[in-house]
Each structure stands twice: as structure tokens, then as C-alpha cells.
Design a protein around this nucleic acid. Structure first.
Lengths: 211, 211
DNA sequence: TCCCGTGGCAAACAGTTGTTTACTGAATCC
DNA sequence: GGATTCAGTAAACAACTGTTTGCCACGGGA
């Protein structure tokens, strides 16, 4: 990683990116036990081992750093969603795969997930809006994938979008549930999430037939 | 209100409760634009117009005040849920009633709803746990009501509980969606929430028949 | 090689924070 | 009616905050 940026960007910019990333990492770590609106600039620079004033070379204030963290956090989630959507299997299988993918993602990036769950309704407007905008894009993407499936024939675009919203909300809920779960609770959560998805999928298959 | 407490408790305790409530109110107001972990003790006492040290006569620290706010906020939500569950009508009707009840509740107690949505995954452990415990009780209550309906015959207790969880999560999601919505968006949100509930209810009616 | 651009530093700034201390005055109890 | 309890006060404490200033060292283009 370091070597590639080194080669491409020159020592100068590479070093800058490095401390920028160090600031993001330190902030993310500190945010495991508090929320963004109480995270201090000095607190972050202290962890990185850099002067407080250096912060301003990278971000105007903590809100701007927060927005950068949103991109980083939801970026990793995005690739996971794409991967799940790309699978073209039968409903029963894709559900278990999805839940397992979410569990794995939480296990791999717990701080990212915690940050999103915490700041989605948190005290910093700019960050809330960044998360909302990105989640809306996820919803659109899911909707497009759903619309391409044969089960969705005859569905209005509005209905497809509301189902996608349900899935995205459920995804975030499940991820945050995994987050605060002890290892032995994980199975129960995965189980519940799977059953909930199955019930939704059942409602989906009977949507226009019954109403 | 003041007169009743006055009569029952004596001037002494009544006054104490009054400033305690003033602290809670001030905190709730300040929390509309920040999160609990960044709310300062002095900030609250300043708004109330009381000396900083007076705070300790009522709460050990801000976390304890937060827990008190949880009880207050979810208390009002609790009566709303009870009211909805008490109605024994046909599925189609109860859905629209419920969504309208949620919308009304958010309109009436926006600060309470915002507080819960924000601190449910917020930075203060004690508050998170208090919210989680209370929402779990809500889930149990909903589950009991669902189990009593004829649609749930043959359902395992586990399945009923997972459906109740889905409803509770959806409730919180919908409430927080109403919260950040402009008045003209309210209708669309209510509409989407209603359709989502209808789809879930559809899946519910086909649960054991298909799987 | 020299010079410019710039990431990072040290120091100082005025404010703010949570917490402790000793106190006052009024409601309560006997 | 006198003693007591206790909600609220004022003042002081050290510790911390975000932001500005002038400075230095050094990588990169000429």
C-alpha cells in the first residue's frame, strides 16, 4: 500500500496522505466509545502524535473529517452490497448468503459499522446528510437489482423502491445488532435476521396477488 | 399540575421536582442539536438558570440524566403503542391507524423521538442499554398481542417474537423518518411505511403455508 | 543549484469544562 | 418555636478546548 502510493505520488503527497489517514484511523478508534460531536480535535492529534495545528492542513473541522469517514465506511459496505446483489441464485439461498455476508462485514470492519449506526442519527448535520445520501444511493441500487428479477413483474417503480428501502433499513439494523452481540449471540441474531428476510420475501411473492 | 404535586408532596419536594424537571427539559432541548456525550453539565444548568453545583443534587452525571430522559421519552411512546395494540380491527385498517398514530406522536413529541433515535446507538453506554432494555420490553408486549391474534395460530413463540422485533424496528425507523421530513414529505413517508407494513402483513399471512 | 511551496511545529490565546468547598436560608419536624 | 435537614449558592481549582501566529525543514520543479 505504502509503496504504491509512494511510487505514484511522490514522497510529498504520500506523506500527507499518510498522516491524513492516520487522523482518520485515530478518530475512528476514538469514536468507538463516544460520538462525533464530542470528539475533540486535540484528542485526535494527540493519538496520532502530531501537533494540533497540523489538523487544519487536512480538515477544516471535525465535521469535515466525519464526512470523510462516511465515505470510507460506506465505501467498504458498498462493495459488499454489490457482491451480494451480483449473485443470481434462488431466494432461499441468497438470504442465508446475505446474512452471512453482513456478519462477516461487521466482523471485519466493526468500527466502520459502529460509526455509521451511531452517526446516522447523530448530532452533526453534515455527517447525517452524507450518510442519508449514500444510503439512498444504496437503496436505488438495490431497487434496480430487484426490478430486474422476475418476481417483480407488474410492480410499480414506487413499490420496488419501498421494498428496497425495507431491505436497506433491515441491513443497517442487522449490522448494528451483530455489533453489540457477544459471539454466542451471533447465531441467534443471524437466525432471526434470516427469518425476517424470509417473511419479507414471502410477502413480496404475494404482493399483487392479494392486494 | 403544579398544584397537585404541591398538595401531595409539600413545598419542599415539589420545588425539587420542579428544578429536576427543568434540568430534563433544558437537556432535551439542547439535545436537538447535539448528542448526549457532548452535552455539558454547565450548559444545562446555565439554561435553567441555576448554579452548576446544583446539578449534583439531582444527578450524579450526565449519563444518569440521560437514563432519566430515556424513561420519560419511551414512557410517552409506550402509551401510544398500548393504544394501537388495544384496537382490535381488521389488518388493513389497523395499519393506517398505526402509521397515523406514529406520525401524530412524532408531531407531538419530536424532541423525545429524536433523543431515542440519536442515543439508541449513541456514545453513552448506560443510555444505550436503557433504551435497548425498554425496546425489548416493547417487543415482548407486541409479541404477546400478536400471539393472541388468530393469524398466529401454529406459530412458534420464536417466530412471533421475530415478527414483533421487525415491527418495533420498523416503528423506530418510521418515526425517525418523520422527524427529519418536511411537512410535504410526510405524506410520502406515511405512504411508504404503510405499504411496507402491508407487505410484512402479507408475508405473515403466508408464513407457515409456504415454508 | 537555488528557490518556492508547504506539511508540521511550538507557543500563546481566551474560554470553557467538571468537581469540590464552605455557605445560606427556608421548609420541615417535634 | 427551636433545631434540623437540605436545595441551591458563590468561588475557586486544575485541566482542557479550538484557533491563530510565526517559524522551520525539506521535497520538487527550474
Amino acid at each position: 500500500m505504502s509503496s504504491s502510493t509512494h511510487a505514484t505520488l511522490g514522497v510529498r503527497q504520500a506523506q500527507k496522505l499518510k498522516t491524513r489517514q492516520a487522523l482518520l484511523d485515530a478518530a475512528l478508534r476514538l469514536l468507538e466509545e463516544q460520538s462525533l460531536s464530542s470528539l475533540g480535535l486535540r484528542e485526535v492529534t494527540r493519538v496520532v502524535g502530531v501537533a494540533p495545528a497540523a489538523f487544519y492542513r487536512h480538515f477544516r473541522d471535525m465535521a469535515e473529517l466525519g464526512v470523510a469517514l462516511v465515505e470510507e465506511s460506506l465505501g467498504s459496505l458498498h462493495v459488499m452490497i454489490r457482491a451480494v446483489l451480483a449473485e443470481q441464485q434462488e431466494a432461499e439461498e441468497v438470504i442465508d448468503r446475505s446474512v452471512e455476508a453482513v456478519a462477516g462485514h461487521v466482523r471485519r470492519h466493526p468500527a466502520h459499522v459502529r460509526f455509521i449506526a451511531r452517526e446516522r442519527h447523530g448530532g452533526v448535520r453534515a455527517v447525517r446528510e452524507a450518510i442519508a445520501a449514500e444510503l439512498e444511493r444504496f437503496g436505488d441500487e438495490v431497487a434496480a437489482a430487484l426490478a430486474a428479477q422476475e418476481v417483480s413483474q407488474g410492480w410499480s417503480a414506487e413499490d420496488v423502491r419501498m421494498l428496497a428501502g425495507l431491505y436497506v433499513d433491515h441491513l443497517v439494523m442487522t449490522a448494528s445488532a451483530f455489533l453489540e452481540a457477544s459471539p454466542e449471540e451471533e447465531r441467534a441474531i443471524a437466525d432471526t435476521a434470516g427469518r425476517q428476510l424470509r417473511l419479507i420475501s414471502l410477502g413480496r411473492r404475494h404482493w399483487r396477488a392479494a392486494s
